[in-house]
Design a protein around this nucleic acid. Structure first.
Lengths: 358, 358
DNA sequence: CTTAGCACTCCATATCCCTGAGTGCTAAAG
DNA sequence: CTTTAGCACTCAGGGATATGGAGTGCTAAG
């Protein structure tokens, strides 16, 4: 798609104006801009052409123009200029960036809230493992007469635990033995590397504790498999601030879809090429989100983990500003996690976290 | 407040009708009810009286009547009849009651979602300890060159963990020693019972690991202190289904207040007298919630833990039905937790859960 | 004490009109 | 050939005005 410089200028102006006013943009409004030196008639001609090309749309004949999804896409890919955060903005971002919690999962959830607050849009945060996790250490602790707690320490200082009911009577000594065997044979192995043969060998040498092996390993494999932590969504109701969602029914549809689709589909659309990714309107999988856009950005947590934060809003969102803010977060979040951890701490993927269940 | 039987009948009818129609109720509508044998004029007289008493309100002169907050309160306290869940309702409740997760925190969050879905209103779930928690077992595990992971097993099979940076070099043997000392001296003690003198004694005998003691105990005390788990809120946008919140601005105000106030104030208003508690409109602390009601119900998790589920909606909510549904949940949730745990598992209060930080 | 009847109130809805912003096209000017 | 001024036309949105209907309170009769 080839645009003349003037057409680009006009398209950019329309997006910029529309983004902040939410009103269709007329030719006059553009002609009035300081760095526009041609008349509204000329602009009308150009706008007609841009409409022809599918970059603009017209709500109705006598209204101004609005960017089409393709228009936004073009804007994002080629026209968007780096937004410079103002001093004020930077300041409040910095203030917000003090994470209060010390617990990883909670921190992620705070990140979601924070991003939502700073963008005034619904936002989410999620952690993912970057590579394969391995068990660093197994620990079996007697919890009560008929139960033990299995504690797994994974690479990246992740800790998972689970309460296990003993199917048979197992002595303290047997537990010690099993513990030792697990730690010698099965640490530092990825889930796939733990083969059936290996497990058989372990089971054979486990003696009286043998019935425990499958219970332990089921949980272990589950922990190793889990690539993504919980998705922490926040500030959904901020969507209602947007004029396009002043109608509660509309907002509700979108929010409901978010709740359902997002959570399941999100890992599939995580930014791949670059650190940032845009899903503009109809580029979303769910048709209910055809007027909704998502901007997501990766950030580094360290220790083989990465995070993703994202913002959800109407197609008419300020991509430049949002991107700038997310970028700022991405740059600084890593440090935050670092700071409160002394060194980067691994994330969410909490399995038996805090509680043990089944 | 003394009402004649007829007045009670009328008040109940008004609440019942208004709850389901959201339209002011006129005298005719009541006269048309099958078990009403007096005329609309009589009803008008009674309504005038009830209005006098502050139990009813009139949106404007030529409209029907609407229950006042006091009217709802009276209804709840004296008029409400047990709502019998229909077969269909019971069936879908049962289907929903299959909790999928095995992780405690996640289960609580699922409970919130579930209750929200079944009532079609925003809902929350929270776990609380019933008594004082104590440490059952301390475990110190080497995590890396300069760090260890502290694992606490608390009463109720709660497990917490935290990564600790070592301020000094500590040998494996020293760790073992400290571990042994902690387990002999500080287990089965409530937070208050762990006195300064006791700690001094422990520190003195800890040898090279002495600098670790405060780090360990800070975290321990924090875990012991925590009485309430995370508040899991869900389905906020379902509030938009209610006609009184068709205006997005109004809905937003309420949802925002919920997010802020709720979370901090909720523990203070947990049901005390009975298992169920109603906060009707202005009975809420926050003035933004003056047209919003909350119904909350306690349920049993076992193991010294209890849960609370609550539902948020307009004052005009179907208290009878909601109460019935919550009651059904309360009855069955305990069993659910049991079932998936083999025996009740302790809750949320995740501190170092899954991840270690700080 | 209850009820039929009636005058009155007032919200909700529909209708109409009108204004103003914006367009596309044409024709003249550069 | 491109730009611009001018003009007729379109249409959404807002305000004013009617109209219908539901509901009330009061009075007077049963």
């Amino acid at each position: 798609m080839e645009l003349t410089p003037r057409q680009k200028q006009i398209l950019r102006a329309i997006v910029d104006i529309y983004v902040s006013t939410a009103e269709p943009v007329g030719s006059k409004a553009i002609a009035a801009l300081p760095d526009v030196s041609f008349s509204s008639a000329t602009i009308r001609n150009e706008m007609a052409e841009l409409t022809q090309m599918g970059l603009l749309e017209q709500p109705h004949t006598s209204a101004g123009r609005v960017p089409s999804p393709a228009g936004y896409r073009f804007y994002i890919d080629e026209l968007m200029q780096d937004y410079r955060l103002s001093i004020d903005e930077t300041k409040s971002l910095n203030e917000a960036l003090e994470l209060k919690s010390q617990e990883f999962d909670e921190m992620m959830s705070q990140v979601g809230k924070l991003v939502s607050k700073m963008t005034n849009l619904p936002a989410y945060a999620m952690a993912s493992r970057q590579g394969q996790a391995v068990v660093k250490h197994f620990e079996l602790v007697q919890a009560g007469p008929g139960s033990i707690i299995l504690v797994l320490m994974l690479s990246g200082d992740e800790v998972k635990n689970k309460l296990i009911r003993l199917p048979v009577k197992v002595s303290e000594a047997d537990l010690k033995l099993l513990s030792a065997i697990l730690n010698t044979s099965l640490t530092d192995l990825s889930g796939d590397a733990i083969t059936v043969e290996l497990l058989e060998k372990v089971t054979r040498s486990a003696g009286a504790a043998a019935p425990l092996v499958p219970l332990v390993m089921d949980f272990t494999q589950e922990c190793l498999r889990q690539q993504h932590g919980d998705l922490h969504m926040a500030g959904q109701m901020r969507l209602l601030d947007q004029p396009e969602y002043r109608d509660a029914a509309k907002a509700q549809e979108v929010l409901e879809t978010l709740d359902e689709e997002m959570i399941s589909n999100l890992p599939a659309v995580l930014p791949k090429d670059g650190p940032v990714q845009f899903l503009v309107g109809p580029e979303n999988i769910a048709k209910e989100l055809k007027d909704t856009s998502v901007v997501m950005m990766r950030f580094d947590i360290g220790d083989g983990m990465q995070g993703t934060v994202g913002v959800v809003g109407p197609t008419r969102m300020d991509y430049a500003k949002i991107t700038a803010k997310l970028g700022y977060f991405a740059e600084n979040l890593g440090r935050m996690f670092q700071k409160s951890g002394g060194e980067p701490m691994p994330p969410a993927l909490t399995e038996g976290s805090g509680q043990n269940t089944k």
